[in-house]
Design a protein around this nucleic acid. Structure first.
Lengths: 252, 252
DNA sequence: AAACATTTGTGCGTATGTATC
DNA sequence: TGATACATACGCACAAATGTT
């Protein structure tokens, strides 16, 4: 069975044996390059493992080792019975003084949506009190949300507000599905991002459930402080982003 | 054997049974709070699992479930035979127009060091050519480095420079262990960060080897473009940060 | 070097509550 | 109302890593 003409690039057999670099690693680098150069567009289906193995002149096990690495890197995704596909590139998510989920997602040509998961008033922990510059233990309103682009979950997280200043904000969020619009209604539409802190970790059960992630994926944990035009903190948030669906971008 | 007086907080048995919230989850929240409030300082050793289980009045398995969650969250770390410890907080790593590894690490009161892993001249991939605004395939100098704070690996990555403009930069980096100082010698000390892109993924074998990470940890993949004062790109870099040792911070 | 205690890591079996069909 | 599946919780035993004597 000869390779068809419309097959993706991943050029035929140019791996060097005994070059000191493992065959599977050479294959990783070739396919990686093909994806980065744009020869393999997002959504493209790769040839079957058997076919690829033949082209590179290696055993299917060797090829699978390469595909496993590319999968770990988040570049491809394999489904039994369907094939292996080049993944869609992540949403570019700019972090700036004016960071708004819905605007960013719209700007990427995708449809944003938000869903209220829950809300309650609770005493502020030391961390949240510091961020919001409130006395520790003050009442804060906590709002848990899930946010999606084209129905795909992007981020899930909690937002904390000074309870007194933001009465009924949770109802407004539930009604509009948007924090921005809810804050506008309260006359706080002009908020701006003051600080953003970013770490990452393995997605736990809850992350996976909320964000519909398979096991072994990672989330970026993004803490943010938003304030009013006078830079007084209004909101502290801690959200988990599906790491392989988002790329955070900082411009200076 | 009674608990000693100097034992950490994690108050004795105040978990509610049949409250609708699983016991292990209540324990997570208590210890989490103790860490965040500062009652459990970084580096503190927690009581043994047996002891904690007794204090909370639960089975050791139940307690272990709570510890596993805290471990996933990166708050604690356990070693067989030694015990369970509250982790040191991550280095705060500000991303700004003037982002310098050594300055940041020094500013955190830690000793920065850098080690050259390798370097070579290679043709620019499409991505790198775009970032550096060079014709695709131009010669670029690639420098691979590992950077540490107090001897602990923080980040490993590649830096690409226009080959012509940065001749012998690799030798300077090898000599000084610092990209900043090497660039200064070439009269390019005044570079500034133009753009930063951040994603995250599970650490692969190479990441784990370079960064001395145990299996299952995550890395943040940070791509950066640095330019001269006229905002002409000088350097493109792609580095992997040990996610549980660093918190990237963006101020607006 | 060898024996030992301490502590976390892992496995098995069992019982109970809770949500779902 | 069952029937079923799943998460929670407990008890006991042993393996593996570490530090000390």
């Amino acid at each position: 069975m000869l390779p068809s003409d419309d097959a993706p690039v991943t050029a035929p057999s140019d791996v060097e044996r005994g070059s000191g670099v493992a065959l599977w690693r050479q294959i990783v680098e070739r396919i990686e390059a093909d994806i980065h150069e744009g020869h393999l567009a997002p959504g493209t289906r790769l040839p079957t493992e058997m076919e690829l193995a033949e082209r590179f002149g290696v055993n299917r096990h060797t090829l699978r080792r390469a595909l496993a690495t590319l999968n770990e890197q988040g570049l491809i995704e394999a489904t039994p019975g369907r094939g292996t596909f080049v993944k869609e590139p992540p949403i570019r998510y700019p972090i700036s003084s004016r960071t708004r989920f819905s605007e960013i997602v719209s700007g990427e040509g995708r449809a944003p949506s938000g869903r209220l998961i829950g809300s309650r008033v609770e005493p502020a922990s030391a961390e949240i009190a510091t961020a919001l510059r409130l006395p520790p233990g003050s009442d804060v309103l906590r709002i848990d949300m899930l946010r999606e682009a084209d129905g795909v979950p992007i981020t899930a997280g909690s937002h904390w507000y000074e309870a007194e200043r933001c009465r009924d904000l949770d109802l407004l969020v539930a009604a509009t599905g948007s924090v921005t619009r809810a804050l506008e209604t309260l006359g706080l539409g002009d908020y701006r991002r003051l600080e953003t802190r970013i770490t990452a970790r393995l997605a736990d059960e809850e992350d996976r459930r909320l964000l519909s992630l398979p096991a072994g994926r990672t989330v970026m944990v993004v803490e943010a402080i938003n304030g009013d035009p006078q830079r007084r903190p209004i909101q502290f948030s801690r959200a988990r982003f599906a790491a392989d669906r988002v790329q955070l971008v900082v411009k200076n």
